[in-house]
Nucleic acid binder design. Structure first.
Length: 437
RNA sequence: GGCCCCAUCGUCUAGCCUGGUCUAGGACGUCAGCUUCUCAAGCUGUAGACACCGGUUCAAAUCCGGUUGGGGCUACCA
């Protein structure tokens, strides 16, 4: 039985910038294709531009990929392979398929043959090019470093890449590369050009039009699973009207050939919605761990040290109404210490009139509760409003502001239970003191 | 300019390859309602698209051609 050669794909970022949305999606498709076919996912750093490549960008790219869960099986650096490219270029020189630049600069240039080249793209089908329209291509630059198209071909061939999955902005690079493959007598890989991601307005994605760096999304409080989920939906669909899909599930059914041809506009609202779905449905302990590492990364740890039990309580209460980790982080602040920062507008709206009598009675009733449960606080609250002859609404909103500092939040009594008796009474004392002034 | 890619609701898409089941399905967003101690969530419902023209065919979102529109490439950047 003939063993079909294993699928090998690669993602080849250049460390001349951070990893952006488009690159991440390209990487994701490669990764999914490799995992779906039990193949190998190669990460190749295209750092031939010594001036513009930096260690910082490299680290940022690697960190972003790890965060997204896109692990690689092999890692290569083009900067370590310059001699290989020169060897191949010399071969072309010897065979008369390339020539030395006439200006004596030392650059090696490929003679462009006059022919028609065909790409059989997995997504676009056959695409034809007339190479007569393409000028001779520089292979090795004056500084003896390889050009992108040359290094790319040599590496893809040497690394036995079977499928090249990349953005369709590379379609016009493909004939130039094919000519190099043919000049060297190398086996052609399969090509799959996936569409680009457009900005919110439909134009080119840019920093100006919105965030583009993966790290920025992380800082905005997105869960990596949610971002990956959203990204894979840009240009691919699992079918069955499914919107929420994990990396694991998608890596079982993904196929590049099913990818769309049309560019997709980035839409923050949908990303936000997917993120909220993950926050609502994720395993609570896992969510807590995510929040913890988010707080640590942001160095704005609301809790110090981290109180897991409390975090779990808060998460349970707030995850339903949270969209990002930032929302959760904010919620956590309400539970930090007895002190509370009260929103000024909220204070104006609900605590500007003197409610010292009402809060006084409420405090007394709360004090008498032995087990500070939602049910018990609700009963105590009820008897308070009855005694004061006011409606629930007249006191519940001020109370919410008093104990949580804001007008919005979870159900009043679940909130009180989570806060606990001690903290609740302390905060009531605090507003009581305010009324006396 | 030349070459190339693309074209279904505002957005992401299903359907297109293998024409009829499409009076075009789903999701986000919008709007309305339910629920309600706030804000959400949730549930129900509403409006909303096959870019245009022509051809092939008994029949086209689906096939073909053109137009228009958008995008990419055209570097000794990647």
């Amino acid at each position: 039985m003939v063993q079909e050669s294993k699928i090998r794909v690669r993602f080849a970022p250049s460390p001349t910038g951070y990893l952006h949305i488009g690159g991440a999606r390209t990487c994701l498709f490669n990764w999914l294709y490799a995992r779906a076919n039990k193949g190998t996912f190669v990460l190749r750093i295209e750092d031939t531009d010594k001036v513009r490549s930096t260690k910082e960008y490299l680290d940022e790219i690697l960190d972003s990929l790890k965060w997204l869960g896109l692990n690689w099986d092999e890692l290569h650096f083009q900067s370590e392979r310059f001699e290989i490219y020169r060897t191949y270029a010399r071969k072309l020189l010897d065979e008369g398929k390339a020539y030395l630049a006439e200006d004596g600069s030392g650059a090696i240039i490929l003679k462009m043959p006059q022919k028609t080249v065909e790409i059989n793209d997995l997504i676009h089908g056959v695409i034809r090019f007339d190479t007569g329209l393409i000028k001779d291509q520089v292979l090795i630059k004056t500084d003896q470093s390889p050009t992108y198209n040359f290094a790319c071909v040599i590496d893809d061939s040497q690394m036995n890449i079977t499928h090249i999955i990349r953005g369709d902005d590379h379609i016009s690079n493909t004939p130039k590369q094919i000519v190099i493959y043919e000049a060297l007598g190398l086996k052609l890989p399969q090509f799959a050009h996936i569409p680009m991601i457009l900005g919110e307005g439909g134009g080119r994605m840019s920093k100006r039009a919105g965030a583009t760096a993966i790290t920025e999304y992380r800082r905005m409080g997105f869960l990596s699973e949610a971002l990956a989920n959203y990204l894979m939906l840009l240009g691919w669909s699992p079918g069955n009207n499914q919107e929420i899909i994990s990396l694991k599930e998608s890596s079982e059914k993904f196929n590049v050939a099913d990818a769309n041809k049309t560019a997709a506009a980035f839409n923050m609202d949908k990303l936000l919605w997917i993120n909220s779905q993950y926050i609502k449905n994720m395993d609570l302990e896992k969510l807590s761990a995510e929040l913890k590492s988010f707080c640590e990364a942001e160095k704005t740890s609301a809790q110090n040290p981290w109180d897991e039990k409390e975090a779990l309580r808060v998460l349970k209460l707030y995850r339903e109404r949270a969209t990002t980790l930032i929302d959760l982080q904010e919620a956590l602040k309400i539970f930090t210490g007895p002190e509370l920062a009260i929103d000024e507008a909220a204070r104006q709206k609900f605590l500007s009139i003197d409610l010292s009598r009402e809060f006084g009675i409420l405090k007394e009733n709360f004090s008498n509760i032995s087990e500070f449960s939602a049910m018990a606080t609700e009963a105590a609250f009820k008897s308070t409003v009855d005694k004061c002859g006011i409606t629930t609404k007249q006191l519940i909103h001020p109370l919410r502001v008093a104990v949580s500092g804001r007008t919005i939040g979870p159900g009043m009594f679940e909130l009180l239970e989570a806060l606990g008796k001690e903290r609740t009474l302390a905060r009531i004392d605090s507003v009581l003191a305010g009324f006396k002034k």
